[in-house]
Amino acid sequence: MALSNIFLVGPMGAGKSAVGRQLARMLQLEFHDSDAAVEQRTGVDIAFIFEKEGEAGFRRREREVIHALTALEGIVLATGGGAVLDADNRAVLASRGRVVYLDASVEQQLERTRLSNHRPLLETPDPAGRLAELMQERAPLYRELATLVVATDGRMVREVAQEIRRRLAAPNEDG
């Protein structure tokens, strides 16, 4: 397989970071996480950025990080769930690598995020409703951008990473 950049998109709780780390190990590529990179650059967590600068401030920082990371060669990048909302992000992701949409149901997202205390968009009385709203808005963008779509509900990280590796290596594979 010709190695190039692989960018993982999808909702929070889809497994982008865990699958990305596993996939990078399998392919002997460098792993990056755009949310972690924002936190590393700013020295504060995303919840703090949301509190002080709002979602717009976070999205600006996220755009800068994604632009920088996608310019690297031979990486696997796990993006934040809302990264696809920005047209510039979509353009650089589409032009600088292969985009894999990790699809997860709202139920699976809720299960995987329920114990997390660093998800500012889920600080609401109805997290399931919020996840459904986010999916309605973002799923068309994930699909439009994706080279391939991989379902993650009820699956082990290694199994998902192996499927991505196999499908990216297959000639003329599409999502």
Rank of each mutant, 00 (worst) to 15 (best):
R90F: 06
A14D: 02
D174Q: 08
M1F: 00
D126W: 13
A78L: 02
E53K: 14
E159C: 00
I66G: 05
R96S: 08
R21L: 14
R25K: 13
N5I: 05
L122Q: 05
M135F: 06
A87N: 05
L141Q: 12
S95I: 10
L121V: 14
A91W: 08
G13C: 05
M156F: 03
R165P: 01
I66W: 01
F48V: 15
K16N: 03
R25L: 10
V44S: 11
A94F: 03
T113H: 07
A128L: 09
L168E: 01
E173Q: 15
G154A: 10
M12D: 07
D88F: 12
L102E: 07
S95A: 15
S105V: 07
V100P: 02
A139C: 05
A71D: 14
Q22E: 14
G43A: 09
D153N: 09
A47S: 15
R158Q: 13
R112F: 03
V84L: 04
G54N: 08
L77W: 02
A24N: 04
R119S: 10
V65G: 03
R96Q: 13
F58E: 02
E111I: 14
A170Q: 10
N89M: 06
E137K: 10
V99Y: 01
F48A: 08
N5Y: 01
Y142A: 04
G74A: 04
F48R: 14
D86V: 07
A169P: 06
K52N: 14
R158H: 12
L148K: 02
L131I: 09
G154W: 02
R119F: 11
D174N: 04
V65F: 06
I75L: 07
R98E: 13
V157I: 15
R138M: 09
N117H: 14
R21W: 03
A68Y: 04
R21D: 05
D153E: 11
E137G: 00
E55D: 11
E159F: 00
G54P: 05
E173T: 14
F48H: 14
Y142F: 12
R41Y: 05
L3W: 03
A2E: 13
D103I: 00
V100M: 02
D88M: 09
A71S: 15
F50R: 07
R63T: 15
V9W: 00
V100Q: 00
N172H: 13
E111F: 09
T42S: 13
E30H: 14
R166C: 07
I6Y: 06
T124W: 12
V38A: 06
L72P: 05
G43L: 09
R96W: 02
R59M: 12
I6V: 15
V149C: 07
A151F: 09
D33I: 05
I6H: 05
H67Y: 09
T42R: 11
A132C: 06
E111C: 04
G97W: 01
M1Q: 12
P125T: 12
E163Q: 12
I75T: 08
L23R: 01
V65C: 06
A151P: 10
E173F: 06
Y142P: 02
G10W: 06
S4H: 07
